[in-house]
Amino acid sequence: MIKMQRKTVTDQGFDETVKNLTPEKIEKTINYVLKKEAAARLKAYVETCVHCGLCNEACHFYLSYDRDPSYSPVSKVRQTLWDMMKKKGKVDAETLKMYARIGYTECNICRRCSMYCPFGIDMGYLMILVRRICGLLKVAPLYLQDQGYSHMYTYSQSWVAQDDWVDTVQFVEEEIRMDIKNARIPLDKEGAEIMYSPHSLEAKFKTNLLANIAKIMNVAKIDWTMPSFDGWDSTNQAMHVGDHETMGMVERMHFNAGFKLKVKKIVTSE
């Protein structure tokens, strides 16, 4: 049996939200995701894994914590998804909190382990499934939930509304003219070659990054534009919370901005 040794961390997103959960609600959600959303793919992955442990050496958490087996990828799946399946969703709120902690904070979904798996099992998918279950039950780190709600409300990651965004662009344009003569940041230019979709932070407190991109585009003499309307933000934190409905909305708005401006290519921020 693997012994979990973890620091106690207080996060309202975990501690307060689990109080609202009933065992029936947890069971219903787990069974919904495992049977309706994940069915065949999950079954294939679970039945293919032979517990060889080749993924261990691939995980940076496992290596950083001096090869603590409880941080190995297979152990993270075992403590979350396999446990849920074995108990058929009948788990209490404390166990759910542990699932959420593993799913959200102890895996970066970098998918390095999948490259070392002899069967190519996509661990990223499995951990996203854990996040999906916890996200539906609203058990997620508070800061991350906040950004998910920001996507719903302002259509950007960090509570930057559309009018603030236009304001930032004008400010940045003025600033880059100190370095480049007559530099322009064209907004809403129809039929442009490239639409640049910035990161939300570039509109809030890392405006120098937006200035960098604008300088490069101006020097390279590129026909480029950015949307002034909602859909300008290329980030998608709802995906990380496990809120696939909002994730779809954000993604669709992003492409819709491209359709509306009839651009040939979209360039994301990273």
Binding site: Y104, T105, N108, C110, R112, L142, Y143, Q237, V241
Partner: peptide, 14 residues
């Protein structure tokens, strides 16, 4: 390559 330990939103947990 190793991940920077901030991927998939971990950077935003505060």
């Amino acid at each position: 390559n190793f991940c920077c330990t901030a991927g998939s939103g971990v950077i935003n947990y505060g």
